[in-house]
Amino acid sequence: MRAFVFPGQGSQKVGMGSELAASSTAAREVFEEVDEALGQNLSRIMREGPEDALTLTENAQPAIMAHSIAVLRVLEREGGLVLTERADFVAGHSLGEYSALCAAGAFSLADTARLLKIRGRAMQAAVPVGEGAMCALLGANLASAQGLAEAAAEGEVCQIANDNDPSQVVLSGHAGAIERAIGLAKEHGIKRAISLPVSAPFHCSLMQPAADRMAEALGATPPGAPRLPVFANVTAAPASEPTQIADLLVQQVTGRVRWRESVLAMREAGVEHFVELGGKVVGPMIGRIDREARADSIMTMADIEALMKEIG
């Protein structure tokens, strides 16, 4: 069994998609459609930067999705891939869940781009710059991360945002609480705590205004039924019913990204081969979660050709 998986924020870089666009009409059409849907030349920012413009949450989120879907469209158009014949599940890390839903046909490409633009803006606006922060805990498990979060909170928000893999858990919350968590990490048996260069405290209760905005947006642009089950971040379980999918996407804004558990659940369901489209982030995480699982990251035309030779 096989799952196609999609990266989240942090996988963007200037030049992303340039080689695909130069080599494939299918990729160029994806970038043009996203530009038109957003009413901005996002593809130029992806291609040329500047980096600070691409890193803006409202640009990074649709850009990462566009890159992933461009890779998929090249696989479909030029490689003859039929997703429903070559995959059993799809999943994505945070914003990558929208990419997964787009790939599975629950959202159109244009609607996915617009929803992610709204999501990026809402998440950025939810907390004034400087009031929130995030940190990565290296060598932490869920129990030690939870203990640290509770010790550091002191009446402020300090919550587990991402359970990425056995070596990395991410905390999110008020800046003071995250600073305290970094200082207390070693006392809780955690090897290292690193402040993350983010502009807002994602996936914690401080994001409630953004969750409310996404409830409105998804009410106006609801998902359809996906052609494949989508493993949801907040439940680490497959979802196929449109109303449930919309509700889970709203919960995801403030909820924990249960990526480690999602991968283990897909493995339990029989998945042996994971294919990451448009990044090299979740593939390596999968390798750390289960060394027996096979994970390929597909970004270039050479990657696409190699994958199609293998799976046909």
Results as ranks from 00 to 15, higher is better:
residue 136 A to T: 07
residue 122 A to L: 00
residue 140 A to R: 06
residue 113 A to M: 00
residue 106 A to H: 00
residue 156 E to W: 14
residue 127 V to N: 01
residue 109 L to Q: 08
residue 152 A to L: 04
residue 118 I to R: 05
residue 146 Q to L: 11
residue 152 A to H: 07
residue 153 A to K: 12
residue 150 E to C: 06
residue 149 A to W: 08
residue 148 L to Q: 05
residue 138 L to K: 05
residue 120 G to H: 05
residue 110 A to W: 05
residue 127 V to P: 09
residue 153 A to S: 10
residue 116 L to C: 07
residue 138 L to Q: 02
residue 157 V to P: 05
residue 124 Q to W: 00
residue 118 I to K: 03
residue 134 M to Q: 04
residue 154 E to R: 14
residue 115 L to P: 05
residue 127 V to W: 00
residue 144 S to H: 07
residue 114 R to A: 12
residue 140 A to E: 00
residue 134 M to G: 00
residue 133 A to F: 14
residue 124 Q to L: 15
residue 115 L to K: 06
residue 151 A to C: 09
residue 142 L to A: 12
residue 135 C to G: 04
residue 120 G to N: 09
residue 140 A to W: 02
residue 155 G to I: 14
residue 142 L to H: 01
residue 124 Q to P: 03
residue 128 P to N: 10
residue 152 A to D: 09
residue 120 G to D: 09
residue 135 C to P: 01
residue 106 A to E: 00
residue 118 I to W: 02
residue 143 A to Y: 12
residue 154 E to F: 08
residue 144 S to E: 10
residue 135 C to I: 12
residue 122 A to S: 09
residue 108 S to E: 10
residue 141 N to G: 12
residue 156 E to D: 11
residue 114 R to M: 08
residue 142 L to N: 09
residue 122 A to E: 01
residue 106 A to S: 10
residue 123 M to T: 03
residue 144 S to N: 10
residue 145 A to D: 07
residue 105 G to N: 08
residue 107 F to C: 07
residue 147 G to D: 03
residue 155 G to C: 08
residue 153 A to P: 04
